[in-house]
Computed example of a mutant assay.
Amino acid sequence: MNKPTPDSRLAVVTGGLGGLGIEICRQLAQAGRRVVALDLTSRAERIDAFRQTLAEFGDAVAFEPVDVSDYEACAATVARIESSHGGIDVLVNAAGITRDASLRKMTPQQWQDLLRVNLDGVFNMSRPVVEGMCARGFGRIVNISSVNGQTGQFGQTNYSAAKAGVHGFSMALARETARKGVTVNTVSPGYCDTPMVAAVPEDVRAQIVAGIPVGRLGAPADIARAVVFLAADDAGYITGANLPVNGGYFMSF
């Protein structure tokens, strides 16, 4: 483990209090990054759990509240972080929600709420950080998509559309920033052992696991490992790529 120092690169993780987010923050800190986790403040117990879980890293890991669906709030948060901690070197867009319903029953509100967080949130955070990354000649942006953005899923037209859009965004931005030392990539998790999947009925979860060749749900550590790999200093020749981490649930090239 490389302990973060005051001179270490700075990573920002949206959805940092979530099942995947906390582990991403932990592994980035273990890799020697200073980390700022961003998330909503609606549940104080989640913030306390985050701080206790990552207490070993002390001041090298911090929390900032933000609603990623609000562009002005994101821009202000980025400015505040850069003023307090320095330039942002790594951005991980992991914030996401679900609002499942078949399209025949989906309300405009369910569509709009999800797109504002899962897709607009990627723009809202990337836009204020990318210029500084390009100016400094280094940056790593890793966007969390989903296997369901590749395959589609019943009852998730909103989620699948947003997650497919995340990778389209990543490829386009990768082309814009490649000559500036900034890479932009996507990680597409399969079904993982997180509270979001735990909420799925047990019989449905059993069917999901039966369809995963490795025979288990993913662990948050599986996803975080892929993020840390793409965020590494020496990963500069990988950009515009999608790294699927799904246990073989969906295979393509």
Rank of each mutant, 00 (worst) to 15 (best):
E23I: 10
G137D: 07
P244R: 04
D7E: 14
N148Q: 09
V68P: 00
M171W: 14
D100F: 06
A62I: 05
N242P: 15
T53H: 10
Y237M: 15
N158C: 12
N118M: 13
D234Y: 05
V204C: 11
R51D: 07
G86Q: 01
L217V: 11
A172G: 14
G240M: 03
M1P: 14
G218R: 07
E202P: 08
S160G: 15
A226D: 07
E56K: 06
D203G: 11
G87T: 05
D70Q: 14
A172D: 12
Q112S: 09
Y71G: 00
F63V: 10
V90A: 01
Y71F: 08
D39R: 11
S102T: 13
V61I: 11
D233F: 02
L119S: 09
L28D: 02
R26F: 11
V122K: 05
A76F: 06
R175S: 13
L20W: 10
C192F: 14
G32H: 02
C134G: 07
V68F: 01
D7I: 07
A55S: 08
R43L: 11
Y249L: 13
D48S: 15
D59F: 10
E45A: 15
A224D: 04
V12F: 01
R46L: 11
P201D: 14
I47T: 15
A75Y: 01
Q27I: 03
